[in-house]
Design a protein around this nucleic acid. Sequence first.
DNA 1: AAAATACTAAAGTGAGTGTTCTAAAACGTA
DNA 2: TACGTTTTAGAACACTCACTTTAGTATTTT
Lengths: 209, 209
Amino acid sequence: MPRPKTFDTSLALNKAMMLFWRQGYTRTSMRHLENATGLSAGSIYHEFGSKQALFDRALHAYIDHVIKARITRHLDGAEDPLSGVEQFMLSSFIALPSTYQQLSCLLVNTAAELDQNESRVGTTLKYGLKLIDDALARTLERAKDRSQLPKTLNTADSAKQLGLMLPGILLAAKNDAPHDVLERAIKQTLSQLKTPTAADQHTIGERHD
Amino acid sequence: MPRPKTFDTSLALNKAMMLFWRQGYTRTSMRHLENATGLSAGSIYHEFGSKQALFDRALHAYIDHVIKARITRHLDGAEDPLSGVEQFMLSSFIALPSTYQQLSCLLVNTAAELDQNESRVGTTLKYGLKLIDDALARTLERAKDRSQLPKTLNTADSAKQLGLMLPGILLAAKNDAPHDVLERAIKQTLSQLKTPTAADQHTIGERHD
DNA sequence: AAAATACTAAAGTGAGTGTTCTAAAACGTA
DNA sequence: TACGTTTTAGAACACTCACTTTAGTATTTT
């Protein structure tokens, strides 16, 4: 019986996500969001509740679309797991679709910008980061099965090691670091994983915290 | 002839630096800076010109005091260069003096928060990051001289590799990542450097960009 | 004492912030 | 046609922001 809504919620959410991605949370004002979504502030608050809640949903949308697509494409969907991992790492700062270029990563940006006491966004953030770590570990395990990596390698720790490099890579890329330097650091790390080390022997098995 | 100034500029700068370190640039208002320094807004503007200029000087102070102290203590001043590097990496998220605790790193925070077109702060930032990379490379080279690392190791690339991990480590620590996971990732990376890999052979010598 | 400089405190600038209110508009049903 | 309900745009709210101005006071030298 009531008046039906005239806009597409998920389309508006996507517009908001792109804006947050490009500008971060703080630098994006409600006026910007009004312009980007085509909605008025009233409608936005009616639909999403608050700027923070909208951001949380935008972050979720980012994880579900952008991150999961990259995981599927470069990791789980990779024919060759080890070069898939390399592609995944490289794709964090190059070879993005043209519209997404120079956008860094919303997850990393959020982790840096986030105020500790915004626990709602914090849990969404951790969910996204864990998604990446797990996918990396899964793919390293697959590489191990194919004897691309030594049997002694701790894949969970190695996945963490790679995951820890991503923020640094993105920040460096944002600050005009030459791409070949980043590329070399990634390739060096991966080639080190291929070589068995004494340290691996001490940390086989368990490790579930 | 005139009335001499009654406040200590470098002391006020240090107070401002601590505040920026704890809260970041955007979240620190002029009112906060007035309270922290004990100066009135008028005096601050007379002395430093603008909030941005004050931040730039605070960042310089951070580099010259905090960063250089850590480099001297853990890298250049280390008896054992390799374990010095390990201590340097670990000290980024633990074992800080109690007053500095939970403060992450102003350099990393700035790199993340920075708007690309603030070129003044951008150059200061690069200066600080290069300081770290160079010190790491220097110390790895020293470790190589003592046969702690293989002669084939490219120290510049390895320094970059370690430097790229720092932002990730700090962001992870800020987001409640368990310290032992971070510790293991660091130690694993270092033990990998000790093992010669095929990739090293291709990248010996040159590399000056 | 006069001149010059340093500093504080407060008010005020104009722009921008997230959020709420209001009232009109648009629909399905009675 | 009129009603109940929801959507919508836009004004308005109360506030903070960086920054400037002004007026007054303090401390020095000439």
